[in-house]
Write a protein that binds this DNA or RNA. Sequence first.
DNA 1: TATTGTTATACTCTATAACTATA
DNA 2: TATAGTTATAGAGTATAACAATA
Lengths: 156, 156
Amino acid sequence: MADKDTNLRQFAGYNMKRAFNVVQHDVNTTLNEFGLRMVTWSALSVIRENSGLRQSRLADILSIERPNLVVLVDQLERSELISRDRDAEDRRAYCLNLTDAGEALYQKALVAMREHDKRMTSGLSDEERETLISMLRKIEINGDLEGNANGSLPTS
Amino acid sequence: MADKDTNLRQFAGYNMKRAFNVVQHDVNTTLNEFGLRMVTWSALSVIRENSGLRQSRLADILSIERPNLVVLVDQLERSELISRDRDAEDRRAYCLNLTDAGEALYQKALVAMREHDKRMTSGLSDEERETLISMLRKIEINGDLEGNANGSLPTS
DNA sequence: TATTGTTATACTCTATAACTATA
DNA sequence: TATAGTTATAGAGTATAACAATA
């Protein structure tokens, strides 16, 4: 009754896709009670780490297209988790910051997310977990060097 | 000019998402010249490995919903890469098999996919690559144990 | 002329409900 | 009644072009 996908299991990418699917599921379940999704959580984290961040820079960091980020930032602002203030020096741009409510929600979600991460990597030692992350980063960089930085990709 | 996502980098899932994004891009670029995508390639591989496979079993193996698989199998059949024959013992079901053209295309794509995998895991030794895959499988199993086997998940 | 944020839009992926034909 | 495959559909996610305000 085992899955008959032995050939595909030889490829790192196939195993990454399957592992990421279950991680994503667990992330969404974890964040659901806070009214967050993976991407809104990520945005909160990056805004918190870079106070006064511009939308276009946030889009760069998270590798999200600018038009798609607008909706996301709208959501966070309507939920009063972030503030969006005009930059005094460049009035085209907005400066993003967490509100107090945003900071409080972030801290609560952070606890849950750390538990989530432990669940997902259970069975791996701390050292193995670090090894995994460093190998994933190598792969990401290999991909970027191939020209996948942010360019267009065929979907058909 | 480095990305300011240090907090997120602590999570295995974030690194998995980013690494998988570049892998998926490279897979699609690689398969594009054969008229395939990641999922059609996967289907070819699994059908090849399980001759006479039924659609619902293929859906199970690839963790795809049955309705979504129909379109995919339609495509492969119209491209004459697979055959779809009624099961003599259960006339509700279809038996899927690769055609000769499907087998030939699979073999050509396989060469390209092995090169792709080498590109993505370049910088990792063979042993490290094996370690990576086994850690990813552990995570996948951890997720399945959490109840992510195929159940519904919140997306909001 | 270029950039920030925006709108509109389209295409893929994924998920569910309900149908048909067979069992 | 249950199962295999199907249809229709709806929601995320993701990508591009074109626009207004500002530089």
